[in-house]
């Protein structure tokens, strides 16, 4: 782990890290990844990754609108709004 990789990952994660955060995270990730490295010794040849512990039972339902949430209730959490629109910086 070096600072350049950490900077690149921060960009991917959309995080803006200060110099001190960058140092702290570089040290921490180096430390924990060194420890986690031990799993490379486990023989996993041909093993299918387990991404969820249960067999998911796929179920279908009618696509019916059951709206009991008002626009106002949703919009009250908007950090910045104009009427019923979310206000953001110009993106185009």
């Amino acid at each position: 782990m070096d600072r350049e990789i950490v900077k690149k990952v921060a960009h991917l994660a959309r995080l803006e890290l200060s110099e001190s955060e960058l140092n702290a995270i570089t040290n921490k990730l180096t430390l924990v990844l060194q420890h986690f490295e031990a799993i490379s010794q486990v023989n996993t040849e041909g093993v299918i990754p387990l991404v969820t512990p249960v067999d998911i039972e796929y179920r279908f339902r009618e696509d019916v609108v059951e709206g009991d949430i008002s626009v106002d209730e949703v919009m009250q959490n908007a950090p910045s709004r104009q009427g019923n629109l979310f206000k953001v910086p110009p993106v185009i």
Binding site: I5, V6, V9, A13, E21, A24, I25, V32
Partner: peptide, 19 residues
Amino acid sequence: NRSEGFGAEVKSRIMLGTY
């Protein structure tokens, strides 16, 4: 927004996971 909203432990886990 994200950097101000998340604390140190959350940021380091997001970083680990993204990596």
